[in-house]
């Protein structure tokens, strides 16, 4: 099913799609673009290449309440929170969607699967958006990702000459386009192909890297690489493939809610253990953990490197200690390019 809509008509489309549940879009929030639920008056920005924080927020929200509690006397009442509304994620770029597939492997493809994630994933309809011009930070080509297409999308969207072309690829996708009804016009005459997009070429040679790193836990490279790390959590929070969370309560006077929220292996307390031991006591151990997870542990289990080349850590790390820096330091660079 192929449909088109003029870009100036998009606010009407947002209104119609948001009627049934949260519609996540790249929204201009002051100086930055964030993937957020649209509301009347919000300014969607489909031209932004990458949102400051990745689209994982839709599938694995930074904060997700799943239980409410109330205590009175000896009585404890637990009220599960249902997150049953259908969600639309509109404008997910190929790198971010590829990253969601990596989260799927962690949360869905293993036993037991993660119920909260599964519910959210199943009820979300994803509208992928092809990239027209990459950011200088983009390097998804290095991971074999085609910025012109997001294979896992329910609907694939392209921006073209003042139009948005929408192609439904799954039943969920068809249902979404049906929901928009007359706002969309037939697009069977349009050419639904995005032009090829070339992203930054860092000359990375990733072949064999995970295998190579297996024996390099004590490699001296770690003694240097971590030095500039400030120990903040920017990289993990903007990263689309980081998926660690913590569970905490928010409330007072006997009532409140239990939620899970993003956590970061860059924080000292991440691995605090009862009794006071911390196996990753310093920044070196934590930096090693983060990069080993992306480049060795994840690939060992799931057969692919846990990076999609979205470039967010290259853009946002305050001291430019990013994944490309790490890959190069670990020898994952084509020698001629050195």
């Amino acid at each position: 099913m192929k449909k088109v809509i003029a870009r100036e008509k998009l606010p009407e489309l947002w209104k119609s799609l948001a009627a049934k549940g949260p519609l996540f879009l790249p929204i201009q929030e002051g100086p930055v673009v964030l993937f957020q639920p649209w509301s009347e008056g919000a300014e969607a920005n489909l031209d932004a290449v990458n949102t400051a924080v990745s689209a994982k927020d839709v599938f694995l929200p930074r904060e997700e309440t799943y239980l409410q509690y109330r205590c009175s006397g000896n009585q404890l009442e637990l009220i599960p929170v249902e997150n049953a509304e259908p969600v639309i994620a509109f404008g997910v770029h190929p790198c971010d969607l590829k990253a969601v597939e990596m989260l799927d492997k962690v949360y869905l493809d293993q036993e037991p699967s993660d119920e909260l994630y599964r519910q959210r994933r199943e009820k979300t309809t994803v509208v992928g958006l092809s990239c027209r011009e990459p950011d200088p930070f983009c390097f998804c080509n290095e991971f074999g990702i085609n910025p012109a297409d997001a294979p896992g999308a329910d609907v694939m969207a392209h921006l073209k000459n003042g139009l948005v072309l929408l192609e439904a690829r799954t039943d969920k996708g068809k249902a979404l386009l049906d929901q928009a009804g007359d706002l969309l016009q037939d697009g069977s005459d349009e050419k639904f192909e995005a032009a090829e997009v070339k992203t930054a070429d860092f000359g990375l040679n990733l072949e064999g890297l995970p295998e190579n790193l297996k024996e390099r836990f004590e490699d001296p490279v770690w003694d240097e690489l971590y030095k500039s790390c400030l120990g903040c959590g920017v990289c993990t929070y903007v990263c689309p493939t980081c998926y660690c969370f913590d569970v905490e309560d928010f409330g007072h006077e006997g009532e409140g809610q239990r939620f899970r929220c993003w956590d970061s292996c860059m924080y000292g307390h991440f691995t605090d253990m009862a009794g006071g031991h911390n196996p990753r006591a310093g920044r070196k151990e934590r930096v090693r953990q983060r990069f080993m997870h992306k480049l060795q542990y994840y690939p060992e289990t799931f057969n692919e490197i846990a990076c999609v080349g979205c470039g967010r850590c290259l853009r946002s790390c305050p001291v430019n200690l990013d994944i490309v820096q790490a890959i190069k330091a670990l020898g994952g660079e084509t020698v001629e390019q050195r």
């Binding site: 929030e29 002051g30 930055v32 964030l34 924080v53 930074r62 400030l230 120990g231 903040c232 959590g233 920017v234 993990t236 929070y237 903007v238 993003w262 970061s264 924080y267 305050p318």
Partner: peptide, 12 residues
Amino acid sequence: SRCLRCYACRQA
């Protein structure tokens, strides 16, 4: 409301 609690401000 945009704060991610990444503590980059503090660490820098």
